[in-house]
């Protein structure tokens, strides 16, 4: 009951392919400065990947703003986010990080191209607006659990345990409880729902330092079986957690041979504003 319906789809019962760094091809490589275009996946790999535990971006473009004043944010982006890896995506302000997160979670549709989600994807783990402030934590947990087909009493227990939330706080409207408790509630529920892929937008989670460390430890435990995509401009805090780091620049993703190179490229780039 705890798993989302993706688990029951026929494709999910097949053995999942494993990927190394070499297989993880994104839109442009660091050595592809001449702009020769996309590095395409071999057709065989593409068939193997589709719907079997990865998120794929195929020529995805997205522009934002009102018609007539639309600003292209992502342009012909190709990427594969495989299962079982922690991927960091570095980007400066205005580079399209939030748009990428929205596209990854499925909250926004691409203008062009195709996004294939072979995994269940969480909401951004640091999002605070998953819960309604007018309702109690218990009611909120019930509603979100129902949405993802999870058994609400189990989820409530999990939220209490992971977020260290007392029973008496469950029945108070969220507008009357400290913000920290709301953050612990949303993050704990996100973890308890057991998505295949978690998306983090700048912060893995908010709240106190102890809770953030605790939450990070929980993700380290799930590292081998779940995916985590951290889209941020402050990668330093998660540098050790990430298997790969990529750079979001000019509307597309650049890959690098190692994490250090990616961070250096970001720091020395024209628009590097990393908070170190």
């Amino acid at each position: 009951m705890l798993r989302s319906l993706w688990r029951n789809l026929p494709g999910r019962r097949m053995p999942l392919p494993r990927f190394g760094i070499g297989d993880f091809r994104l839109g442009r490589t660091a050595n592809d400065d001449a702009g020769t275009g996309v590095v395409p996946l071999p057709v065989r790999s593409r068939d193997l990947l589709r719907g079997h535990g990865s998120i794929e971006f195929h020529g995805v473009s997205k522009a934002l703003g009102l018609s007539g004043k639309r600003v292209p944010v992502l342009q012909d982006m190709n990427a594969i986010f495989p299962r079982g890896r922690v991927v960091g995506v570095l980007g400066a302000s205005g580079s399209g990080k939030s748009t990428l997160v929205q596209l990854l979670t499925g909250n926004m549709r691409a203008d062009a191209g195709r996004i294939v989600r072979g995994m269940s994807v969480s909401w951004p783990t640091g999002a605070r607006d998953i819960f309604r402030r007018e309702l109690t934590l218990r009611k909120n947990v019930r509603i979100v659990s129902g949405l993802y087909g999870a058994w609400a009493p189990d989820m409530l227990e999990a939220v209490k345990e992971i977020g260290k939330i007392r029973s008496q706080d469950l029945d108070r409207p969220l507008s009357e409880v400290p913000a920290d408790l709301v953050i612990r509630g949303t993050a704990s529920l996100c973890y308890a729902l057991d998505f295949d892929c978690y998306i983090a937008d700048d912060l893995l989670t908010g709240g106190s330092k102890h809770f953030r460390d605790h939450f990070k430890e929980l993700f380290v435990e799930r590292k081998s079986t779940h995916s985590l995509i951290i889209v941020t401009k402050n990668i330093i805090a998660y540098r050790e957690l990430c298997d790969d780091i990529h750079l979001l620049e000019g509307g597309t993703l650049r890959t690098f041979a190692n994490k250090h190179d990616a961070i250096q490229a970001f720091k020395t780039g024209d628009r590097a504003k990393v908070l170190d």
């Binding site: 934002l64 703003g65 018609s67 600003v71 400066a92 302000s93 205005g94 939030s98 926004m108 504003k273």
Partner: peptide, 20 residues
């Protein structure tokens, strides 16, 4: 309808521009 609620971010963040 969604277009009207989604707007692009500023190219630069005025509060972190000088922070490296």
């Amino acid at each position: 309808a969604q277009e009207q609620t989604q707007r692009p971010q500023e190219e630069t963040d005025p509060f972190t521009e000088n922070m490296v």
